[in-house]
Design a protein around this nucleic acid. Structure first.
Lengths: 370, 370
DNA sequence: GCTTGTACTTGAAACGCATCAAAGGGGCCG
DNA sequence: CGGCCCCTTTGATGCGTTTCAAGTACAAGC
C-alpha cells in the first residue's frame, strides 16, 4: 500500500524522472512510443500524482474554490452550476465548500482555499465582506457573489431592486389593488426587492401595499403563518395579491390560504421571488422572479479569469446582473432547469404544458447591467 | 502581492522557522509570550500557510473529498449535508466536487482528491465502481455511496428494495387495484425499487401492476408524458394508483393527470420515491418514500473514520440503510429539511398542517441494517 | 561550582514533483 | 568525415512546510 511515486514509475519504465513529469504535463514533448511506455507503466503501477507536490513545485493549480453558505438553497446551487460550467470551459476544476451558515466555517474554508494555491476563490458571503482585513491582502484573485460591497474588490450581484420591480409590474398587470409583501427586512437582498416594489408602485397610488416581516425567510412555516393571518381577515381587508420575497414563503402562504378555503389564484394571487427549483418542479408551478444565479456563478468565474490573465487587473469591479423575464410552464421549466442560462418569472396562473416563449414586457436584458 | 511565507514570519518575529511551525501545529510547546509574538506577526503580515507544502511535508490533511454526480438532485444534497456534519464533528473539512453526470469528470475529480492527500474520499458513482482497477489499489480510504458493489471495498447504500416495499404497502393500504409504476429500468436503484414493489404485491394477486419505462428519470416532462398516456385511456383501463420511481416523474404525472381533468387523488392516487425536497416544500405535498440520504452521508464519513483509525481496517464493509417511514405534512417537512436525520414518506392526501408523528407500520429502523 | 534536568528553540533533512539548462542522439549538408 | 541543428531526454535545483535530533538557557540540587 506504499504510495507509488514518480521516481518509481521512472525506474520501472527505464526513463528519467523528468521524462515522466513531461509525460504528465507536456506530452507533446515526448516521442509517442516513450509516452506510451510511460503511460502503460503508470497504469500498471497505479501511479497517482501527488497534487500537493505538484502545486508546491508548479505554482498555480488551475482550480477554483467556491464557498457557499448552504447547499440546499436553490439559488446557491444555480451559482455553483454556472460557476462549474464556466470553470470547466476554461479547463479549471471547481471545489465547493459548505459553510453551513457559520461565519467561522466560512472564514475557515476561505483561508483553506487561499492556502491551497487555488487560482481563485469565490464566496457567497453571509455577512458583508468588508469586515475582513485579510481579504484585502490576499495573494489570490477573489470574487464576492450576491452581495454589494463598497470596498475595492470584485463582486457580482443580482439586481434585486429590478426583481422587485418586475414582480410589482406583474401585480399591476394582474390588476392588483391590495398587495401584501411577505419577507424578512433584515436581509439586504430582500430589502432591495421591497424597494423595487415600492418604486414601481409609486406611480400607482391607488394600489395599497403592506409589508409583513415573516421572521425568517427559509421556511415555508413562516409563510404559512402569514398566509393564515391573511386568511383570517375579513374578506374586504384581504389583499388580492401576495408577494413572497422568497419562494418558500410564497409556498407556505399558498398552503395556508388553500387550507383555509381561500381560492388561489381565484381570490388571491400569489407570487414568489427566488427561482427556487422547488417552485417550478412541483406539480403546481409557482410564479417567481428568479435572480440569475447561474449567470452570477458564470460571471464570477469570468472575473476570476480576468484577474488571472491580466497582469495588472483592475482594483475594483462591480457587476450587477438583471433578472431576465420569461414565461415558461412548470414542466418545461423543470426540463431545462440546468440548461437555461437565464432564469425567469412565471405566469401566476396555471399555464398550459406548451412552452411559451413570450417575453414579459418588463424583461431586463442580461447585458443591460454589464 | 508577494506571498509571505513562514520564513518571513520567522525573520520578522526574530525566531526560527521551526518555532513558527510549532506555533501553528503544536502551540502548547511554546512559551506563551513567544506564541503571542508569533501570532501577532502572522496577523500583521497576513501570513497564510501554504496547504500544499503542509500536506507534502506533513502527510494527511484532515479533510475529505466527496464527488457527487450532480448538485441539483435533492438526494445528493442530503448526502452532502450528512457527510458535512459528520466530518465537522470529527474536525475534518469536506470538499465537494460536481461530476456533472460525466464519467470522465468523475474519474478526474476522484484522482484529484486521491492525489491531494485527502484523508478519505467518497463517491456517489454514476456507474458501478467495480470497473475501475485504480480504485482497488488506492492508498486512500474510499467509500462508495448509494450503490452496491460486489468487489471488496466499502459502501453505504439505501435499501432500495425496502423503499419499493413501503410504497407498495402504502398502495395496498389505500385499497389500490391497479398500479402503474413509472420509471427507468436501466438504473439499478430504480430496478430494486420495482423488485420491492413486486415482492410486496406477491401476496396480492388481485392487484394488477404495470411498469412503464419513462425513458428518463430526472425530468418532469417524462412523467408528464406517461401521465398524459394514462389520462387518455378509457376510464376502466386507468390505474387507481401511480408510482413515480422518482419524485419528478411523479410530479410530471400529476401535472398531466390534472391537466386532462383527472382528479388526484380522487380518481388516481400518485406517490413518488426520492424524498426530493421539491416534493415537500411545494405548496402541494407529494407522497414520497425517501431514501435516507443524510444518513448515508453520515455513515460514509463514519466508515472513513473507521478506516483511518484502525491500523488494520477490514477489507470489505457493506452497509445498507433502510428507509425510515414517518408521516409529516408539507410545511413541517420544509421546516426541518435540514435537521431531520431520517427521511420519510408522506401521506398521499393533503395533510393538515399539524405535524403527525405516526409511524408507518412498514418503518424500518435505522439501526436494523447496521 | 558542577551536574542533572526541564523547557524551549533551532536548523537541517525530507516530502514528491515541475522546471530548465544542459547533454545526448540522429539526420542532413557540405 | 566533420559540423550543425533539431528533437528528445536527463537530473540537479527549489517550491514551503513539518519533523526531529540536537542544541541552548536556565533552574534546581548537591
Amino acid at each position: 500500500m506504499a504510495k507509488v511515486k514518480i521516481s518509481d514509475v521512472a525506474r520501472e519504465a527505464g526513463v528519467s524522472l523528468g521524462t515522466v513529469s513531461n509525460a504528465l504535463n507536456h506530452p507533446e514533448k515526448l516521442r509517442p512510443e516513450t509516452l506510451k511506455l510511460i503511460n502503460e507503466t503508470i497504469n500498471r503501477l497505479g501511479y497517482l500524482p501527488n497534487q500537493s507536490a505538484r502545486q508546491l513545485a508548479g505554482g498555480a493549480t488551475k482550480s477554483f474554490g467556491l464557498v457557499l453558505p448552504r447547499l440546499d438553497h436553490g439559488f446557491s446551487l444555480q451559482i455553483a452550476s454556472g460557476a462549474h460550467n464556466e470553470a470547466r470551459k476554461h479547463g479549471y476544476d471547481l471545489l465547493i465548500a459548505n459553510a453551513d451558515n457559520d461565519d467561522i466555517l466560512e472564514d475557515h474554508y476561505l483561508r483553506y482555499f487561499m492556502g491551497t494555491q487555488m487560482s481563485g476563490v469565490m464566496v457567497q458571503p453571509m455577512a458583508s465582506p468588508d469586515w475582513h482585513p485579510v481579504m484585502a491582502k490576499m495573494p489570490v484573485p477573489i470574487v464576492h457573489l450576491d452581495i454589494h460591497c463598497s470596498e475595492p474588490g470584485y463582486y457580482v450581484a443580482a439586481d434585486n431592486e429590478a426583481q422587485g420591480r418586475i414582480i410589482a409590474e406583474l401585480a399591476i398587470a394582474r390588476g392588483a389593488h391590495h398587495i401584501v409583501v411577505v419577507g424578512r427586512a433584515a436581509f439586504m437582498q430582500l430589502t432591495l426587492r421591497v424597494l423595487g416594489i415600492h418604486k414601481a408602485l409609486a406611480l400607482h397610488p391607488d394600489i395599497k401595499i403592506e409589508v409583513i416581516d415573516a421572521g425568517e425567510w427559509n421556511t415555508a412555516a413562516d409563510g404559512y403563518g402569514i398566509g393564515a393571518q391573511i386568511a383570517a381577515r375579513p374578506a374586504d381587508e384581504r389583499p388580492d395579491f401576495v408577494v413572497g420575497l422568497t419562494d418558500v414563503l410564497a409556498s407556505g402562504a399558498i398552503s395556508a390560504l388553500v387550507d383555509k378555503g381561500i381560492a388561489v389564484p381565484g381570490e388571491v394571487r400569489v407570487a414568489g421571488c427566488d427561482g427556487n427549483p422547488l417552485a417550478w418542479s412541483g406539480s403546481v408551478p409557482l410564479t417567481t422572479v428568479a435572480p440569475p444565479g447561474y449567470e452570477i456563478g458564470r460571471k464570477g468565474v469570468q472575473l476570476l479569469m480576468e484577474q488571472i490573465e491580466n497582469k495588472a487587473p483592475a482594483k475594483t469591479k462591480h457587476v450587477h446582473i438583471g433578472s431576465a423575464a420569461r414565461t415558461v410552464t412548470a414542466v418545461t421549466a423543470a426540463e431545462d432547469i440546468n440548461r437555461q442560462e437565464l432564469v425567469r418569472p412565471f405566469l401566476l396562473e396555471r399555464a398550459s404544458t406548451q412552452a411559451s416563449t413570450q417575453t414579459d414586457a418588463t424583461a431586463i436584458n442580461l447585458g443591460a447591467y454589464l
